[in-house]
């Protein structure tokens, strides 16, 4: 997840007149230490752990237990959306890539803010972007959740990579 880089982007919120938030949804890779949410209290507990251990300063907003918000916006595990004043969707990304988010803030939100003074009209483009797989980083981060998360993504080889030849924590 790009949470740290998004925290850095959020530090420029005031200059851009943007409010950054983190919407906490279902556990993408539930495992021994971070099981699927059985209650809102458990979801709150996971979100607090995330906030405290990852030093998240952005407001964390919790979706409900049935994922109403998550489903309305596309249900993928790490999307980023930029919504302009009044609710107009300016940018939607299936996966969070911070440099692409910065480009969207400058182009889509910046243009929106300048549209009257520069006599701009909206247009629309759609493109595919690419992100690095970074399996090693995922394995390292997933130790927090537990071995199940690693094994379900990368099998026994992933467990060995994480924990050594025995494949156990």
């Amino acid at each position: 997840m790009a949470a740290r880089a998004m925290e850095e982007i959020a530090e420029g919120d005031a200059d851009r007149c943007v409010r950054s938030v983190f919407v906490y949804v279902r556990e993408a890779h539930p495992a021994e230490n971070l099981p699927p949410h059985a209650s809102m209290e458990q979801k709150r507990d996971h979100a607090r752990q995330f906030r405290d251990e990852q030093n998240i300063k952005r407001p964390i907003l919790l979706d409900d237990m049935t994922g109403t918000c998550h489903k309305a916006f596309g249900t993928l595990p790490n999307m980023t959306w930029l919504i302009g004043r009044g609710g107009v969707i300016l940018y939607k990304a299936a996966w969070t890539r911070p440099d692409d988010v910065i480009a969207a803030l400058e182009e889509s939100w910046g243009g929106y803010q300048r549209r009257r003074q520069d006599d701009l009209m909206p247009a629309y483009s759609e493109r595919m972007i690419w992100r690095a797989g970074d399996d090693d980083r995922f394995i390292e981060l997933s130790k927090r959740a537990g071995p199940q998360a690693i094994e379900e993504m990368f099998g026994k080889e992933g467990l060995k990579k994480a924990y050594g030849e025995k494949g156990e924590p």
């Binding site: 997840m1 790009a2 949470a3 998004m6 982007i9 959020a10 919120d13 851009r16 007149c17 943007v18 409010r19 950054s20 938030v21 983190f22 919407v23 906490y24 949804v25 279902r26 556990e27 993408a28 890779h29 539930p30 495992a31 971070l34 996971h46 979100a47 752990q49 995330f50 990852q54 952005r58 918000c69 998550h70 916006f73 993928l76 595990p77 790490n78 999307m79 980023t80 959306w81 930029l82 919504i83 302009g84 004043r85 009044g86 609710g87 300016l90 969070t96 988010v101 803030l105 939100w109 929106y112 997933s142 927090r144 959740a145 998360a149």
Partner: peptide
């Protein structure tokens, strides 16, 4: 309500979880 967040400015929403 989400609409209250974007009433006066833009909102950048990252979706995710700890796992």
């Amino acid at each position: 309500q989400l609409k209250d967040l974007w009433k006066s400015g833009a909102v950048l929403m990252e979706f995710g979880s700890y796992s």
